[in-house]
């Protein structure tokens, strides 16, 4: 498997890089379209969606990521803000650089102010063929998935809302595995998504 990048415009990309390295892969920060050429997978971290949308557009990264993804040469994992950006729609009218890799609608910051942020156990269906997996999920001013299209797989839910979803070469979750010591989801992304990209 080739190198994996973490989009490093703004947000908690460093924690993702640490997790990817622990999961056994070379991981690098991505700030420009040229840097994207060297990776076969990309993690879009948590952060502020308006900030990252503006920076993605300004430096041509939204276009570059979309081209690579649509050509089948890039797997993508979005957490929290990253989930918003990989989905096709948001509730309300936002000018965000959404990539549309997963046919789903999300409501941003759906749980209220930071005092409503929380952590909770969720159960993820059969990761790496190992059967259901209990996972400590940390939700920080999290988005909520309000609609999924027909081709979207729901891998885990919290309180009735999808928490981990996938379609094609894209995985997305509204919680933060990188805030825990549990790198099984990063490993899952590497094994089941990034590994499908030819070197």
């Amino acid at each position: 498997m080739g190198r994996i990048g973490a989009l490093a415009l703004q947000g908690d990309f460093e924690l993702h890089i640490k997790m990817l390295r622990r999961a056994g892969v070379e991981a690098v920060e991505i700030r420009t379209p040229a840097q994207l050429d060297s990776v076969s997978g990309l993690v879009i971290p948590g952060g502020e969606s308006t900030t990252v949308s503006r920076l993605m557009r300004r430096y041509g990264l939204d276009k570059a990521i979309r081209e690579r993804y649509l050509s089948g040469s890039l797997a993508v994992y979005g957490t929290c803000m990253g989930m918003i950006l990989v989905c096709s729609d948001t509730e309300g009218d936002h000018d965000l650089a959404q990539l549309g890799f997963i046919d789903a609608t999300v409501e941003r910051n759906a749980y209220g102010p930071q005092v409503e942020s929380f952590e909770s156990d969720i159960v993820i269906d059969s990761v790496n063929g190992a059967g259901p997996m209990r996972f400590r999920a940390v939700f920080i001013r999290a988005p909520k998935v309000t609609r999924v299209g027909d081709g979207v797989k729901i891998l885990a839910s919290h309180a009735g809302a999808p928490a981990l979803i996938s379609q094609g070469l894209c995985l997305a979750g509204n919680f933060h595995p990188e805030l825990t010591d549990d790198w099984r989801l990063h490993k899952y992304f590497l094994d089941e998504f990034a590994a499908r990209i030819g070197d």
Partner: peptide, 21 residues
Amino acid sequence: MEEKGTMRVKIGLAEMLKGGV
């Protein structure tokens, strides 16, 4: 069980602001 206001949840928001203004 849902837990709010844990140190991890508090530090989590600070982590999300990294690389920002």
